[in-house]
Amino acid sequence: MKIAYYPGCTLKTKAKNLENAAIAALGKLGVEVEELERWNCCGAVYSLADDDLIHQVAPVRVLIRAKDSGANKVMTLCSQCYNTLARANRLVKEDEEKRKTLNLFMDEESGYNGEVEVVHMLQFLRDTIGWDEVKKKVVKPLAGLKVAPFYGCTLLRPTEVSIDEQPFAPKVMNEFLTALGATPVQFGSTTDCCGAYEVLVNPDAAVRQSADILVKAKAAGVDAIALSCPLCEYNLGRRQPSIKLARPEIEEMPVYYFSQLLAMALGVAEQSGPFELNNLATRAQIKERKLATV
């Protein structure tokens, strides 16, 4: 099986571990990941202004590239890319006037009418591969690992693009973690915002938000947090030393991309790095539990 894949900017550098792990794991599941030959940044955030069409050009261009590659489905790993592309796709499908204007603007590209479906990898695993199939391929179950699923905002909101039919009580990550042999643990902040780009303008508020999430996860007794967004990973994982400066009582918490846990369970852990991109607590846990060679 083949799937067209849109990486987005962060996956090639700061979240290379998210990508490496996903490609290796999907390979184990018999899926060939075909990266779009040419792609651009999706814009990272979906434009919320009614009179602003220029910021829809980037995501729609990506969708056109996917369509021109012959794909009817394009997969993302980054939650923000998923959100931006899925919403731009809906706009093209639902707003005839804006669709026409966008198509007029595309000089060199073919016309686009929403032919491609945008899916996040968790949807692809659930709907196309199936949890039973994933379970069958697990060679190193993550037994005894208590994991808090963290969705953040962009996989679930707005409701129209939610990857789970229950955006207020999602279960796709629970099913995913269960298939890997891990123990999913619900905690109070599963669908909260990590603080996002507020880290640039109101860092204190962002730190408070991230710290509260880490405290709640710790209180729920989890061993680690699993997520899919590089910005959530930054705020909750890599930024833990800065959070500790403001809130010394915070204990370090391992944070994994969901794809890394999948790669570890499927026996391709060594391809799920570079682990230097994960925080120290994650690396220590990987070593301690012999999940991979760190």
Binding site: C41, G43, V45, Q80, Y197, P230
Partner: peptide, 28 residues
């Protein structure tokens, strides 16, 4: 502008994922 990109600490720019910067610049 709400933020001045030149004032962002160099270490932060190196460490931050691109989506933080792109999203921040788009919003701010």
């Amino acid at each position: 502008d709400k933020i001045n990109p030149r004032e962002i600490v160099r270490e932060d720019v190196i460490d931050m994922p691109q989506i933080a910067l792109v999203a921040g610049f788009r919003k701010l």
